[in-house]
Amino acid sequence: MRRVPPYLALFAYVVFLAFPLLWLLSTALKTPQEMALTSPTWIPREPTLANFADAFGEQDLVGAALRSLVVALSSSLITVLISLPAAYAMARYRSLVSRIAVGWVLVSQVFPFILIVIPLFLIMRDLELVNTLPGLVAVHVTFTLPFALWMLQGYVRAVPRELEEAAAVDGAGRLRSIASVVAPLLAPGVVATLLFAFISSWNEFLFALVFLQDPDVMTLPLTLVRFTGPEGVARLGPLAAASLMATIPSLIFFAIIQRRLKSGLMAGAVKG
Protein backbone atom coordinates (compact mmCIF):
# COMPACT_ATOMS: atom_id res chain seq x y z
CA MET A 1 0.00 0.00 0.00
CA ARG A 2 2.98 2.30 0.47
CA ARG A 3 3.39 2.12 -3.27
CA VAL A 4 0.09 3.79 -4.05
CA PRO A 5 1.13 7.48 -3.74
CA PRO A 6 4.10 7.16 -6.11
CA TYR A 7 1.90 5.48 -8.70
CA LEU A 8 -0.69 8.21 -8.40
CA ALA A 9 1.98 10.85 -8.86
CA LEU A 10 3.45 9.03 -11.84
CA PHE A 11 -0.02 8.77 -13.34
CA ALA A 12 -0.56 12.52 -12.90
CA TYR A 13 2.71 13.21 -14.74
CA VAL A 14 1.76 10.87 -17.56
CA VAL A 15 -1.61 12.61 -17.95
CA PHE A 16 -0.05 16.09 -17.95
CA LEU A 17 2.59 15.07 -20.50
CA ALA A 18 0.32 13.04 -22.75
CA PHE A 19 -2.96 14.92 -22.96
CA PRO A 20 -1.87 17.73 -25.32
CA LEU A 21 -0.23 15.12 -27.56
CA LEU A 22 -3.39 13.00 -27.65
CA TRP A 23 -5.47 16.07 -28.37
CA LEU A 24 -3.20 16.97 -31.29
CA LEU A 25 -3.58 13.44 -32.65
CA SER A 26 -7.33 13.49 -32.12
CA THR A 27 -7.67 16.85 -33.88
CA ALA A 28 -5.62 15.61 -36.80
CA LEU A 29 -8.00 12.69 -37.33
CA LYS A 30 -11.29 14.61 -37.17
CA THR A 31 -13.59 15.71 -39.96
CA PRO A 32 -14.38 19.45 -40.26
CA GLN A 33 -17.98 18.67 -39.26
CA GLU A 34 -16.85 17.10 -36.01
CA MET A 35 -14.48 20.00 -35.31
CA ALA A 36 -17.45 22.36 -35.41
CA LEU A 37 -19.37 20.50 -32.68
CA THR A 38 -20.02 22.54 -29.56
CA SER A 39 -18.70 19.92 -27.18
CA PRO A 40 -15.40 18.51 -28.47
CA THR A 41 -14.85 14.76 -28.55
CA TRP A 42 -11.70 12.93 -27.54
CA ILE A 43 -12.08 10.01 -29.92
CA PRO A 44 -13.01 10.97 -33.48
CA ARG A 45 -16.28 9.31 -34.49
CA GLU A 46 -15.20 8.84 -38.06
CA PRO A 47 -11.40 8.97 -38.04
CA THR A 48 -10.14 10.33 -41.32
CA LEU A 49 -6.77 10.85 -42.96
CA ALA A 50 -8.21 13.57 -45.18
CA ASN A 51 -6.51 16.24 -43.07
CA PHE A 52 -3.11 14.86 -43.96
CA ALA A 53 -3.99 14.97 -47.66
CA ASP A 54 -5.35 18.50 -47.24
CA ALA A 55 -2.22 19.60 -45.42
CA PHE A 56 -0.08 18.38 -48.29
CA GLY A 57 -2.21 20.32 -50.74
CA GLU A 58 -2.10 23.59 -48.84
CA GLN A 59 0.48 26.32 -48.49
CA ASP A 60 3.22 24.43 -50.25
CA LEU A 61 3.95 22.34 -47.17
CA VAL A 62 5.81 19.76 -49.24
CA GLY A 63 8.07 22.43 -50.66
CA ALA A 64 8.66 23.85 -47.18
CA ALA A 65 9.49 20.40 -45.83
CA LEU A 66 11.96 19.80 -48.66
CA ARG A 67 13.62 23.16 -48.05
CA SER A 68 13.85 22.39 -44.32
CA LEU A 69 15.40 19.04 -45.21
CA VAL A 70 17.99 20.64 -47.49
CA VAL A 71 18.87 23.29 -44.91
CA ALA A 72 19.06 20.80 -42.03
CA LEU A 73 21.10 18.25 -43.99
CA SER A 74 23.61 20.76 -45.31
CA SER A 75 24.01 22.63 -42.06
CA SER A 76 24.45 19.47 -39.98
CA LEU A 77 27.02 18.03 -42.40
CA ILE A 78 28.98 21.28 -42.57
CA THR A 79 28.80 21.72 -38.79
CA VAL A 80 30.30 18.30 -38.13
CA LEU A 81 32.90 18.61 -40.90
CA ILE A 82 34.31 21.86 -39.58
CA SER A 83 33.92 21.18 -35.88
CA LEU A 84 35.53 17.74 -35.92
CA PRO A 85 39.11 19.00 -36.48
CA ALA A 86 38.58 21.82 -34.01
CA ALA A 87 37.15 19.44 -31.42
CA TYR A 88 40.18 17.20 -31.90
CA ALA A 89 42.49 20.16 -31.34
CA MET A 90 40.52 21.27 -28.28
CA ALA A 91 40.69 17.83 -26.71
CA ARG A 92 44.32 17.03 -27.53
CA TYR A 93 46.22 20.28 -27.15
CA ARG A 94 45.91 22.26 -23.98
CA SER A 95 46.43 25.82 -24.97
CA LEU A 96 45.00 29.28 -24.62
CA VAL A 97 43.06 28.91 -27.86
CA SER A 98 41.18 25.84 -26.73
CA ARG A 99 40.42 27.50 -23.42
CA ILE A 100 39.04 30.51 -25.27
CA ALA A 101 36.98 28.13 -27.40
CA VAL A 102 35.46 26.59 -24.28
CA GLY A 103 34.73 30.06 -22.95
CA TRP A 104 32.99 30.95 -26.20
CA VAL A 105 30.84 27.84 -26.00
CA LEU A 106 29.58 29.05 -22.62
CA VAL A 107 29.18 32.71 -23.62
CA SER A 108 27.21 31.75 -26.72
CA GLN A 109 24.65 30.05 -24.49
CA VAL A 110 24.07 33.18 -22.43
CA PHE A 111 23.78 35.97 -24.99
CA PRO A 112 20.28 36.79 -26.21
CA PHE A 113 20.03 35.98 -29.90
CA ILE A 114 18.36 39.29 -30.60
CA LEU A 115 21.64 41.09 -29.95
CA ILE A 116 23.25 39.04 -32.74
CA VAL A 117 20.30 38.73 -35.06
CA ILE A 118 20.02 42.47 -35.77
CA PRO A 119 23.61 43.09 -36.90
CA LEU A 120 23.62 39.70 -38.62
CA PHE A 121 20.58 40.79 -40.61
CA LEU A 122 22.37 43.98 -41.69
CA ILE A 123 25.47 41.98 -42.67
CA MET A 124 23.45 39.37 -44.55
CA ARG A 125 21.55 42.07 -46.38
CA ASP A 126 24.79 43.62 -47.57
CA LEU A 127 26.02 40.19 -48.66
CA GLU A 128 22.70 39.66 -50.52
CA LEU A 129 22.08 36.52 -48.42
CA VAL A 130 18.68 37.49 -47.03
CA ASN A 131 15.90 35.30 -48.42
CA THR A 132 18.37 32.65 -49.52
CA LEU A 133 18.81 29.18 -48.11
CA PRO A 134 22.65 29.31 -48.11
CA GLY A 135 22.40 32.35 -45.86
CA LEU A 136 20.24 30.43 -43.40
CA VAL A 137 22.59 27.43 -43.57
CA ALA A 138 25.53 29.67 -42.66
CA VAL A 139 23.65 31.01 -39.65
CA HIS A 140 22.49 27.59 -38.50
CA VAL A 141 26.05 26.24 -38.78
CA THR A 142 27.38 29.09 -36.68
CA PHE A 143 24.86 28.61 -33.93
CA THR A 144 24.97 24.83 -33.71
CA LEU A 145 28.75 24.91 -33.76
CA PRO A 146 29.44 25.69 -30.09
CA PHE A 147 27.38 22.81 -28.75
CA ALA A 148 28.57 20.45 -31.50
CA LEU A 149 32.17 21.32 -30.58
CA TRP A 150 31.41 20.66 -26.94
CA MET A 151 29.85 17.27 -27.67
CA LEU A 152 32.61 16.20 -30.07
CA GLN A 153 35.52 17.19 -27.89
CA GLY A 154 33.96 15.08 -25.13
CA TYR A 155 33.90 12.09 -27.48
CA VAL A 156 37.49 12.72 -28.60
CA ARG A 157 38.66 12.83 -25.00
CA ALA A 158 37.02 9.47 -24.41
CA VAL A 159 39.32 7.88 -27.04
CA PRO A 160 42.49 6.92 -25.15
CA ARG A 161 45.49 8.83 -26.36
CA GLU A 162 47.59 5.70 -25.95
CA LEU A 163 45.79 4.10 -28.88
CA GLU A 164 46.94 6.88 -31.15
CA GLU A 165 50.47 6.70 -29.82
CA ALA A 166 50.53 2.96 -30.33
CA ALA A 167 49.58 3.48 -33.96
CA ALA A 168 52.32 6.09 -34.28
CA VAL A 169 54.88 3.65 -32.88
CA ASP A 170 53.78 1.15 -35.49
CA GLY A 171 54.86 3.71 -38.07
CA ALA A 172 51.53 5.18 -38.99
CA GLY A 173 51.64 8.91 -39.70
CA ARG A 174 49.50 11.24 -37.67
CA LEU A 175 46.76 11.48 -40.28
CA ARG A 176 46.72 7.74 -40.81
CA SER A 177 46.59 7.04 -37.12
CA ILE A 178 43.65 9.40 -36.82
CA ALA A 179 41.87 7.92 -39.81
CA SER A 180 42.33 4.29 -38.86
CA VAL A 181 42.28 4.40 -35.05
CA VAL A 182 40.40 7.46 -33.83
CA ALA A 183 37.75 7.76 -36.53
CA PRO A 184 36.06 4.38 -36.02
CA LEU A 185 35.88 4.92 -32.25
CA LEU A 186 34.42 8.37 -32.80
CA ALA A 187 31.74 7.22 -35.22
CA PRO A 188 28.88 6.92 -32.69
CA GLY A 189 29.68 10.34 -31.27
CA VAL A 190 29.79 11.85 -34.73
CA VAL A 191 26.41 10.34 -35.56
CA ALA A 192 24.92 11.73 -32.35
CA THR A 193 26.33 15.17 -33.11
CA LEU A 194 25.06 15.04 -36.70
CA LEU A 195 21.58 14.18 -35.48
CA PHE A 196 21.71 16.92 -32.87
CA ALA A 197 22.73 19.49 -35.49
CA PHE A 198 20.07 18.24 -37.90
CA ILE A 199 17.30 18.59 -35.34
CA SER A 200 18.46 22.02 -34.14
CA SER A 201 18.26 23.28 -37.70
CA TRP A 202 14.99 21.49 -38.50
CA ASN A 203 13.31 23.03 -35.44
CA GLU A 204 14.87 26.49 -35.64
CA PHE A 205 12.45 29.39 -35.86
CA LEU A 206 13.80 32.85 -34.97
CA PHE A 207 16.61 33.09 -37.53
CA ALA A 208 14.38 31.67 -40.24
CA LEU A 209 11.69 34.20 -39.33
CA VAL A 210 14.13 37.08 -39.65
CA PHE A 211 16.05 35.94 -42.72
CA LEU A 212 13.34 34.36 -44.86
CA GLN A 213 10.54 36.78 -45.63
CA ASP A 214 9.61 35.51 -49.07
CA PRO A 215 7.00 32.69 -48.81
CA ASP A 216 8.76 30.88 -51.66
CA VAL A 217 11.85 30.15 -49.56
CA MET A 218 10.26 29.61 -46.14
CA THR A 219 11.16 26.57 -44.06
CA LEU A 220 8.63 24.26 -42.43
CA PRO A 221 8.22 26.02 -39.03
CA LEU A 222 7.51 29.31 -40.78
CA THR A 223 5.01 27.78 -43.16
CA LEU A 224 3.27 26.08 -40.23
CA VAL A 225 2.90 29.40 -38.44
CA ARG A 226 1.51 31.06 -41.58
CA PHE A 227 -1.03 28.26 -41.65
CA THR A 228 -2.66 29.64 -38.50
CA GLY A 229 -3.40 33.04 -40.03
CA PRO A 230 -7.17 32.93 -40.57
CA GLU A 231 -8.50 31.29 -37.42
CA GLY A 232 -11.11 29.08 -39.06
CA VAL A 233 -12.02 25.97 -37.10
CA ALA A 234 -12.12 23.99 -40.34
CA ARG A 235 -8.42 24.55 -40.88
CA LEU A 236 -7.39 23.22 -37.48
CA GLY A 237 -7.51 19.61 -38.71
CA PRO A 238 -4.98 20.06 -41.52
CA LEU A 239 -2.88 22.23 -39.19
CA ALA A 240 -2.74 19.45 -36.59
CA ALA A 241 -1.89 16.91 -39.29
CA ALA A 242 0.93 19.08 -40.63
CA SER A 243 2.26 19.66 -37.09
CA LEU A 244 2.38 15.92 -36.48
CA MET A 245 4.33 15.36 -39.68
CA ALA A 246 6.78 18.12 -38.79
CA THR A 247 7.56 16.29 -35.55
CA ILE A 248 8.43 12.96 -37.15
CA PRO A 249 12.15 13.61 -37.86
CA SER A 250 12.77 14.73 -34.28
CA LEU A 251 10.92 11.75 -32.89
CA ILE A 252 13.05 9.37 -34.97
CA PHE A 253 16.16 11.12 -33.69
CA PHE A 254 15.12 10.78 -30.07
CA ALA A 255 14.11 7.18 -30.55
CA ILE A 256 17.63 6.48 -31.78
CA ILE A 257 19.47 8.23 -28.99
CA GLN A 258 16.99 7.54 -26.19
CA ARG A 259 19.28 5.06 -24.55
CA ARG A 260 22.34 7.23 -24.91
CA LEU A 261 20.52 10.20 -23.40
CA LYS A 262 20.59 8.84 -19.90
CA SER A 263 24.31 8.37 -19.68
CA GLY A 264 26.40 8.63 -22.81
CA LEU A 265 25.27 11.82 -24.45
CA MET A 266 25.03 13.77 -21.23
CA ALA A 267 28.38 12.49 -19.99
CA GLY A 268 30.00 13.41 -23.27
CA ALA A 269 28.32 16.77 -23.43
CA VAL A 270 28.30 17.96 -19.84
CA LYS A 271 31.31 16.48 -18.19
CA GLY A 272 33.64 16.32 -21.17
Binding site: L17, F19, L236, L251
Partner: peptide, 25 residues
Protein backbone atom coordinates in the same frame (compact mmCIF):
# COMPACT_ATOMS: atom_id res chain seq x y z
CA UNK B 1 6.77 10.48 -22.57
CA UNK B 2 9.06 12.66 -20.52
CA UNK B 3 11.41 13.09 -23.48
CA UNK B 4 8.79 13.71 -26.18
CA UNK B 5 8.35 17.48 -25.56
CA UNK B 6 12.10 17.82 -25.99
CA UNK B 7 11.87 16.21 -29.40
CA UNK B 8 9.15 18.52 -30.69
CA UNK B 9 9.83 21.72 -32.63
CA UNK B 10 8.88 24.70 -30.41
CA UNK B 11 6.56 25.93 -33.15
CA UNK B 12 4.65 22.64 -33.09
CA UNK B 13 4.42 22.76 -29.29
CA UNK B 14 2.94 26.24 -29.57
CA UNK B 15 0.43 25.17 -32.21
CA UNK B 16 -0.52 22.07 -30.22
CA UNK B 17 -1.28 24.07 -27.08
CA UNK B 18 -3.19 26.57 -29.16
CA UNK B 19 -5.46 23.67 -30.07
CA UNK B 20 -5.80 22.75 -26.38
CA UNK B 21 -6.61 26.34 -25.38
CA UNK B 22 -8.83 27.04 -28.41
CA UNK B 23 -12.01 28.69 -27.08
CA UNK B 24 -14.37 26.66 -29.30
CA UNK B 25 -12.64 23.56 -30.54
Amino acid sequence: LAVVPWAMPPVVIGLMWKLVYHPDA
